[in-house]
């Protein structure tokens, strides 16, 4: 299998900030070409499905595919308490009343 796009590979290495030696660079480039080829299936599938993106699995913003009623996430239902319009983030020193 040939490395198809050396230029893209160089750019990826730069963004990812990982130093690679020549051999690693070549092997990884070949492997990435094969994996990218395999993952291309999602682009076609998404076009056919025409669905909205889902980033958080319990985001029920869009209607379910069986036409059930749509749900919205309400910030008041989130586990983190909201105080004065700000979300208290416990690990950054925000106080959460249990």
């Amino acid at each position: 299998m040939e490395c198809k796009d050396k230029e893209v590979m160089e750019k990826l290495v730069e963004i990812a900030k990982i130093s690679l030696n020549e051999e690693e660079r070549k092997t990884l480039c070949d492997e990435l070409s094969r994996i990218a080829e395999y993952l291309k299936a999602v682009g076609e599938a998404a076009r056919e499905l025409g669905t909205e993106p889902l980033y958080y699995v319990w985001d029920l913003g869009g209607p379910l595919r069986d036409g059930g009623e749509s749900h919205r996430v309400d910030v008041r239902e989130l586990p983190t308490k909201v105080k004065d319009g700000h979300i208290a983030v416990p690990w950054r020193g925000g106080r959460v009343e249990e």
């Binding site: 909205e52 980033y55 699995v57 595919r65």
Partner: peptide, 18 residues
């Protein structure tokens, strides 16, 4: 991004719903 990551999140919604 649109062809890969965003596309995958779209397919994910369909899978989740099914």
């Amino acid at each position: 991004r649109d062809e890969f990551y965003v596309a995958a999140t779209r397919v994910r919604r369909a899978i989740r719903d099914e």
